[in-house]
Simulated scan of single mutants.
Amino acid sequence: MTVDSAELVVETPYIWRARRPDARHRLICFPHAGAGAGAYAEWADLLPPEIELVAVQLPGRQNRIMEDPFTETGPLVRVLAQALRPILNSPVLDGSFAFFGHSCGAVMAYELARVLRGRGTAGPGHLFFSAQPAPQLFDQVPRLHDLTDEEFREEVARLGGLDPEIAEDDDVMDALLPTLRADFEMWEQHPVAPGEPLDIPITVLSGRDDPRAPGTTVEGWREHTTGPFHAEYYPGGHFYFLDAPAEVVGFLGQSLLTPSLTGRVS
């Protein structure tokens, strides 16, 4: 039930936020390949009123469709660390906040958490990684970026996540595919540098029938934290959360408000 209605709106080129001035926590969400911040719009009213939603918007999609997408992960993560920093009356990386990333968005969130630690600045109190194998197991997932256009389009459609009208519209798909391919190419080739594990609680979420993130691969994230680790599975495939958004977002909210469920949030 919606208690405190909030709308996800554009604040800066990189930040869409559903403001809740009295919120105690903030959930910062990172998009999957080809997706924009709007992928999380429905979540604003599904989260408890104590939690404010922020969604990251990248170039090459939605209101930034005319901009070129990033092609290198290093510059992307450095830009995000700057773009999400506390500024004026729009602090994002302050107070109690957590990261959620789906698919390649999980790696984006992980690398940003590592950058923040390296700079000695405040980091997330919890990391939620969805439908993404742990870095040391990336090679267990078939790569898509080097497929032909026809093969790539078929595989992307098979994963789900696209409205049927979009998937069947050749003109729309032709416009979306360059950004989708750029994202897959960037993250599928991203080498995660070795380093000390984080000390942040990590919770992984995945669909039980996800061909790109089997349970054995997502649970490999356990090696990347000295803090609590928890795995949560749902019916469905790679885009399991589209089938039951209220259940998934409810779990995230409960995890943040009742830290003993999945680990302590700072």
Score class of each variant (00 low, 15 high):
Asp4His: 06
Ser5Lys: 09
Ser5Glu: 11
Glu7Ser: 14
Leu8Gln: 12
Thr12Asp: 08
Tyr14Ile: 00
Ala18Gly: 09
Asp22Gly: 04
Leu27Gly: 07
Ile28Val: 15
Cys29Phe: 02
Phe30Asn: 08
Phe30Trp: 04
His32Gly: 08
Gly36Ile: 12
Gly36Ala: 13
Gly38Tyr: 00
Tyr40Leu: 06
Glu42Arg: 14
Ala44Tyr: 04
Asp45Lys: 07
Pro48Asp: 10
Glu50Pro: 04
Gln57Phe: 05
Met66Gly: 02
Glu67Val: 06
Asp68Thr: 13
Pro69Met: 03
Phe70Pro: 05
Pro75Gln: 07
Pro75Ala: 10
Leu76Phe: 00
Arg78Gln: 11
Gln82Asn: 12
Arg85Phe: 03
Leu88Trp: 08
Ser90Asp: 11
Ser90Ala: 14
Val92Asp: 05
Asp94Gly: 14
Gly95Lys: 10
Phe97Glu: 08
Ala98His: 05
Phe100Gln: 02
His102Tyr: 05
Gly105Cys: 01
Val107Ser: 13
Ala109Thr: 10
Ala109Gly: 13
Glu111Tyr: 00
Leu116Met: 09
Leu116Pro: 07
Leu116Ala: 08
Arg117Cys: 05
Thr121Arg: 09
Ala122Trp: 00
Gly123Lys: 13
Pro124Asn: 09
His126Leu: 01
Pro133Arg: 11
Pro133His: 08
Pro135Asp: 05
Arg143Asp: 07
Leu144Thr: 04
Glu151Phe: 00
Pro164Asn: 11
Glu165Gly: 00
Glu165Ser: 13
Glu165His: 12
Ile166Asp: 04
Ala167Arg: 12
Ala167Gly: 12
Ala167Val: 10
Asp170Ile: 11
Asp171Ala: 15
Met173Trp: 02
Met173Phe: 00
Pro178Phe: 02
Thr179Pro: 01
Ala182Ile: 03
Phe184Met: 12
Glu185Val: 01
Glu185Trp: 02
Gln189Tyr: 00
His190Gln: 14
Pro191His: 13
Val192Asn: 02
Val192Ile: 12
Pro194Asp: 15
Glu196Cys: 02
Glu196Gly: 05
Pro201Met: 08
Pro201Cys: 05
Ile202Gln: 07
Val204Leu: 03
Ser206Ile: 01
Asp210Tyr: 05
Asp210Thr: 07
Pro211Tyr: 06
Ala213Tyr: 03
Pro214Gln: 13
Pro214Tyr: 10
Thr216Glu: 15
Glu219Thr: 15
Gly220Cys: 03
His224Val: 01
His224Asp: 01
Phe229Glu: 02
His230Phe: 00
His230Leu: 06
Tyr234Gly: 12
Tyr234Glu: 08
Gly237Asn: 05
Phe239Glu: 05
Tyr240Ser: 11
Val249Arg: 10
Val249Asp: 00
Leu252Ala: 10
Leu256Lys: 04
Leu257Asp: 00
Thr258Ile: 04
Ser260Arg: 14
Leu261Met: 14
Thr262Val: 14
Val265Leu: 15
Ser266Trp: 02
Ser266Val: 07
Ser266Pro: 15
